[in-house]
Amino acid sequence: MKRFLLILVHSVIWRSFLRLIIGVKYINRGVLKSQKQFILIANHNSHLDSMAIMSAMPIAMVHKVHPIAAEDFFGDKSTKEFLMKHFVNAILIPRKRPEKLGDPDALQIMSDLLIKGDSIILYPEGTRGEPGVMQDFKKGIALMVQRHPDVPVVPIFLDGLYKSMPKGVNVFLPSNSKLFVGEPIKFKSLETEVILKDSLEAILAAKTD
């Protein structure tokens, strides 16, 4: 039932809405169909980012893809939390490190998802930044790659969505934008620095023409 709902919401309603009204174009989406599981990394400028990426997912996978969102930002109100969990399929994680035994550990939550065979969407910048400026990547993505080197990492570049819904506003307006899917990244080595550098380059390289 939840799967059916997610397909209806993302692959049918959101995809048509984003395409026809907002003017989003999906470029090179075929890459996603050729993979069974992945970690998606993307630049982050707008609340629409997760919705756009979710709507680009192949129908067979929608229910297995989870955007990772901050608990303190999205989990504060019960309705917001309900929407995030059931309509966006998001997983809420705490931003802080676990202080005492028994606290939820963000990395462990994500690892469990990947072990289960699910996919996750990560924004290595950590939060929505200013358009056109890439912030320094947080280490989380590197730690995930080190723990699960077999899961392909697919870069996504989102261009123009910030014009549709910039940081700090609650209404989105039509504005042509593009979602580029890049080829899975081949990391040169599994050192943290190298992974972060390769990821950044791959996201920027996903933008073609």
Binding site: K163, G168, V169, P174, S175, N176
Partner: peptide, 15 residues
Amino acid sequence: LREIYTHLKLRKTDR
């Protein structure tokens, strides 16, 4: 109109 707006550099308050 959407095409023009995509290129206009409007202020956030113009939304």
